[in-house]
Structures are given as structure tokens and as C-alpha cells.
Simulated scan of single mutants.
Amino acid sequence: MKIKLTLCLILFLHSLAFSQKQDSIKVSQPLSATANVQFTNNGVSLFPNLSLGRPAVIATLSVGKKGVYFEPELRWGLNGKPWSYIYWLRYKYRKSEKFGITVGAHPSYIVKETDVQINGVNDKRYVAQRYAAVELAPTYYFSKKFSLGVYALQATRLDNNGIKKSQFYSLMPRFPFIGLSKSYYLSFYPQIFYLSLDTDSGTYFNETLILSKKNFPISLSSVFTTKIKSEISGDKIVWNVGLNIKL
């Protein structure tokens, strides 16, 4: 009788351990990582004061799991000179197939060549403007081909150089997949946004258009921004084209 009870106990513990192992396998998530490198004829930003205005290369990386992601965006001039470095930490919460929300924060460094005086001698040096920002971006997904989101960002200067306070609010309809053929498709991301830089403000229209081929790492993109009404200095129309490579 004792032998039977011992065998039953061993079998019970074994089955319990096996089921726990299966459950742990089900809930575990692998670390996801993606990267993209873009070469563009014109380094532009939705913030006019942060645009480069000449050919540039932009490297973006996303690493994370369970909704938490580290997503740096590193930008240089095509000549290798520094432009800006943004280090996003984001939490992406997807409540259902229809609704999701992203919250994020970052420190950033905007690098500009500046005239300085060192030991009485005039010289040019790269000076970094330091910022910190927070974002909030809820999105409603009507289907795999259309979603609508709003985006809010507030940035604050951390030193004595540059704009002290920035605010950005936008309405963003998204069309990630517009089929052109069995192999090619367009992604279309228009937005209307309001931008405030210290005491100046303005409204703008922006669109990003991407031509992609299924299961192919290279795509072409274009960004177009125009002023609707604005007190902020900068060109009325800004655009670029880019070659994107997924790694």
C-alpha cells in the first residue's frame, strides 16, 4: 500500500512539474529586435529648428519584449558629422485588437556647429542642446488597413541653448497597406499637427509615403510638410526622399 501511494505521489508531482513547465513556456516571450537605416537627400524634422537641411543618414533600432521597448534614433549628416541622438523608452499596451496606447520618454541631444571663443581664439565646435520629452499616443484600429490615432509630445530644454519648451499635438490617420499588385504596396501616413516653440506656434500638414515590396528589405519613402498657418520661422514647404534598408 505504501509503495502504491509513493508511486502515485511521484506521478502527481511529475505531472504538476510538467504542466508548470508547459505554462512557463506559453507565457515566455522572446526578445524582439528590428533595425532600419535610411539614406535621405534632406534631413528634415517636424520641428523646423531641429532640421539638418542637407543629406543625412538615420539609424533606428527597436529592442524589447512584453510591451517595453528601447528605441534609439541616431542621425548624422551624410558626411559623417553629428546631427541628433534620441533615446526613446516606450511602453506599448495593446488592450485588444481594436485599441492600443503608447507612452514614452526620452533624453535627446541636438548637435549643431557653433562659433565659440577658446582662450581668445575664435573657432567652430559642435555643441549639443539637451532635451527631455514625454509622449502619449492612443490609437484605434478599425482594420489591418486603417487606424486613427492622436499624438501628444512635450519637450523641455535641459540647458541654456535652444528652445526652452516645445509642444506637439497631431491627428494621425494611418493606411499601412494599400495594395498595388501581388508584390508591391504603399503605406500612407498623413497628419495635421499643431506645434508650439516657446512663444511661437503654428499648424502644419505632413505626409509620409512608403513604397515597399513584400518580403524585401529595401523600400523608398518620401516626407512632405507644408505650413497651414504659422509664426515659426522656416520654409513653407519641406520635403525629402529616402532609401530605407531593414536589418
Score class of each variant (00 low, 15 high):
5 L>V: 03
5 L>F: 01
8 C>K: 12
10 I>A: 13
10 I>T: 15
11 L>F: 14
22 Q>P: 05
28 S>I: 10
28 S>R: 11
29 Q>D: 14
30 P>C: 00
32 S>W: 01
34 T>I: 07
41 N>Y: 08
42 N>Q: 15
46 L>H: 04
49 N>Q: 01
51 S>Q: 09
53 G>F: 08
54 R>E: 11
56 A>L: 05
64 G>T: 01
66 K>E: 12
73 E>Y: 09
76 W>D: 04
78 L>I: 01
79 N>K: 08
80 G>S: 06
80 G>W: 02
80 G>Y: 04
80 G>C: 07
86 I>A: 03
88 W>N: 09
88 W>M: 04
91 Y>F: 07
91 Y>A: 03
93 Y>H: 10
96 S>I: 09
96 S>F: 09
98 K>G: 02
98 K>P: 07
99 F>Y: 10
99 F>Q: 06
101 I>P: 00
102 T>M: 06
102 T>D: 01
104 G>K: 04
105 A>W: 01
106 H>Y: 08
110 I>N: 03
112 K>L: 02
118 I>Y: 06
118 I>D: 05
119 N>Y: 01
119 N>E: 04
121 V>K: 12
123 D>N: 14
123 D>W: 02
124 K>H: 06
127 V>W: 02
128 A>T: 04
133 A>S: 15
135 E>T: 15
135 E>K: 06
138 P>R: 11
140 Y>I: 14
142 F>C: 15
142 F>T: 14
146 F>L: 11
150 V>P: 14
151 Y>K: 13
153 L>W: 00
154 Q>C: 06
156 T>V: 13
156 T>F: 14
164 K>E: 15
170 S>E: 01
172 M>I: 14
172 M>G: 08
172 M>E: 13
174 R>M: 03
175 F>H: 09
180 L>H: 08
183 S>N: 14
183 S>F: 09
183 S>C: 02
185 Y>L: 06
188 F>S: 04
191 Q>K: 06
191 Q>H: 06
192 I>P: 05
192 I>L: 09
195 L>W: 00
195 L>H: 06
197 L>M: 05
200 D>M: 05
202 G>M: 08
205 F>V: 12
205 F>G: 15
206 N>P: 02
210 I>P: 03
212 S>K: 13
216 F>Y: 09
218 I>V: 15
221 S>Q: 14
222 S>C: 12
224 F>N: 11
225 T>F: 00
226 T>F: 08
227 K>G: 01
232 I>D: 07
233 S>H: 09
235 D>C: 01
239 W>I: 02
240 N>G: 12
243 L>E: 11
245 I>H: 03
